[in-house]
Simulated scan of single mutants.
Amino acid sequence: MKTYTPKQIANTLDVSTTTLRRYEEQDLIPVVPRTKSNHRFYTPIHFQAFITIRALLKGYDIPIAYEVMRMSKNARFEEVLWLVNEQQYHVQVEKQRVEEILTMIQNADFTKYKNVKLKEYMSIGEAAQIAGVNTSAIRHWEHEGLVHSERNKENGYRMFSISELRKILVISSLRKIVYYIENMKSLLNELDTQNYGKIEHSFQLALKNLNNQLLHQMKGIAELIKYIHFYQEINT
């Protein structure tokens, strides 16, 4: 059986041997054998495990990629496949959401979103539920001057108008591609003046990123399937 030194695999995958050891310490790969002189050596299934980890990390968040590898190591393959399937569903939902918000921006009569009739003013909880974010995120955006609320005269609670809700929806969709507060403020100013060119470009970039994420997820799944088949072959 072919074997590999840590340096050989590290060079092939363009990572450090420290990274390989970290994956081992995180319990992401099968047990690593040792030589008589106590040096690590890897077999083809370890090589495929490392390839799979690197592929998954391009399309999935680190906790998900790590959980997939840990479950695979314990032969929980059905759970693994359902988990990656769920993550693809999340990408699809986010894509639909971005497309809906882009359409909403272009719609001058913004009185309804996802078949929910909007009130003139909404509480922070209602705004968060509609936008699919935490109330803490809205408070942070308000602190940064991205959105503004008014206070309910009776109880002092924050109230957000429809126009501010629209900003919240835009921020929630573009926060992964618009990294600087001033850039986001500029886009929101464009929204106020109904100059949608830059905003539409940003949304198209968001959609492109989601498409790329889906592609990387599919590539990760392809390597995962190879790993699962490899694992099953040597354990039957």
Rank of each mutant, 00 (worst) to 15 (best):
M1V: 12
K2N: 10
T3F: 05
Y4A: 13
T5H: 05
P6E: 04
K7S: 12
I9S: 06
I9G: 07
D14I: 11
S16D: 08
R21Q: 08
R21V: 07
R22E: 08
Q26K: 15
L28R: 03
I29K: 02
I29C: 08
V32P: 02
V32F: 03
S37C: 06
H39S: 11
R40V: 04
T43F: 03
I45Y: 03
I45L: 13
I45T: 11
H46G: 03
F47Y: 08
F50S: 03
F50Y: 12
I51N: 05
T52N: 04
T52C: 11
L57I: 12
K58M: 13
P63H: 10
A65H: 03
A65L: 06
E67M: 10
M71V: 01
K73L: 13
A75T: 07
R76V: 07
E79N: 14
L81W: 06
W82E: 14
L83G: 08
L83V: 10
Q87M: 14
Q87L: 07
E94A: 14
K95I: 13
V98T: 06
E99Y: 01
L102T: 07
Q106P: 00
F110V: 11
K112E: 12
K114A: 09
G125K: 09
A127P: 00
A128R: 01
G132R: 06
G132F: 04
T135I: 13
H140T: 04
E142S: 10
E144K: 15
G145R: 09
L146H: 03
S149Y: 01
R151H: 07
K153G: 09
G156N: 08
S161C: 09
L165H: 02
L165D: 01
K167A: 01
I168P: 00
I168V: 12
I168G: 00
I168T: 01
L169E: 00
V170M: 05
L174R: 05
R175F: 04
K176N: 15
Y180W: 04
Y180M: 11
K185A: 07
K185C: 03
L188N: 02
T193A: 12
T193E: 10
Q194P: 00
Q194D: 08
N195S: 13
Y196R: 11
K198V: 07
I199K: 03
H201L: 14
S202Y: 07
L205T: 10
A206N: 04
K208Q: 14
N209Y: 10
L210H: 09
N212A: 14
L214W: 02
H216T: 09
H216R: 09
Q217W: 01
K219H: 12
K219F: 09
G220R: 01
G220S: 03
A222F: 05
E223W: 04
Y227F: 15
Y227Q: 04
Y231T: 15
Q232V: 14
Q232T: 13
E233D: 10
I234L: 15
I234D: 07
I234W: 03
N235R: 14
